[in-house]
Design a protein around this nucleic acid. Structure first.
Length: 252
DNA sequence: ATGGCGCGGGGTCCGCGA
């Protein structure tokens, strides 16, 4: 199974890029964030896709599309406070959770919301036996875990995404049994999945890693390979998302 | 790119993103 996570920054603006991505890289499960559209206006991406769409007007929104049957699904959960940020699907025996976490702010109301979102996510995960079940959480976590996940650790010290409480959340995922596949593949080097549109960040390699594919060990045993498609972010036309697609392949 | 943001809503700007 080839699964891709991609914060598209509006599916309508990114339709051509997403369609080419699906074709060129044989994407079988596509987890999108920031679709920025109501469910009724979500466009047709691929005739072979079945999609679970959880959107709203203008902001946020997530969608999970699959070429395999979606055996179970759930849109939303307690932690998202009327902003669509969570979809659960069961595909090929893999429990797939697609999230768009709140950005937050430096210790204001939105930061409290971000902490609440993750509290409720950990609570929701209690239904699984993480030592036995194949569980995958992917998406835009809006957390840069370590110094390897920011382009300049001095500049990012004390800034949102890189605050101690946020780093602790990522560490907690690892503590309860998840493997961070991107970091496992690149244990000692900076790799980024987001480059701000402003300041020509992508051309200066001033990026952050905000996107993750976390898997439990029973699924990690089936992991085959990983691709981070930075090349798509570097093209000028059609206009790319500010995030980079990340693809993982598993023997399931 | 040898320069420097893009999106949607409803506007000729604003709020938002991180």
């Amino acid at each position: 199974m080839r699964i891709c996570t991609f914060n598209v920054n509006s599916i309508r603006s990114r339709l051509e890029i997403v369609q080419n991505l699906v074709n060129d890289y044989n994407i079988e499960v596509l987890c999108m964030q920031e679709i920025k559209v109501e469910n009724k206006d979500f466009p047709l991406i691929d005739k072979d896709f079945e999609c679970v769409i959880h959107g709203q007007k203008k902001l946020h929104g997530v969608a999970t599309c699959s070429k395999f049957p979606i055996e179970e699904s759930q849109k939303g959960f307690e932690g998202e406070l009327n902003e669509p940020r969570f979809i659960y699907t069961l595909i090929n025996g893999v429990h797939i959770i697609n999230i768009y976490a709140p950005l937050g702010d430096n210790y204001g109301d939105r930061f409290e919301y971000k902490m609440y979102f993750y509290d409720k996510l950990f609570e929701w995960l209690r239904r699984f036996d993480l030592s036995k079940d194949k569980v995958l959480i992917c998406g835009d976590f809006n957390i840069s875990h370590t110094e390897l996940d920011v382009w300049d650790e001095v500049i990012w010290e004390g800034e949102v995404t890189h605050l101690p409480e946020e780093k602790a959340i990522l560490s907690k995922f690892l503590d309860i049994g998840f493997v961070d596949i991107i970091r496992k593949e690149y244990p000692n080097e900076k790799v980024f999945t987001f480059y701000d549109y402003r300041g020509a960040a992508v051309y200066k390699n001033e990026g952050l890693r905000l996107d993750y594919i976390l898997v439990t060990k029973p699924l990690f045993e089936k992991f085959k390979n990983l691709e981070i498609l930075t090349s798509i972010r570097r093209k000028r036309k059609p206009t790319p998302s500010d995030h980079v697609p990340v693809i993982a392949e598993f023997d399931v």
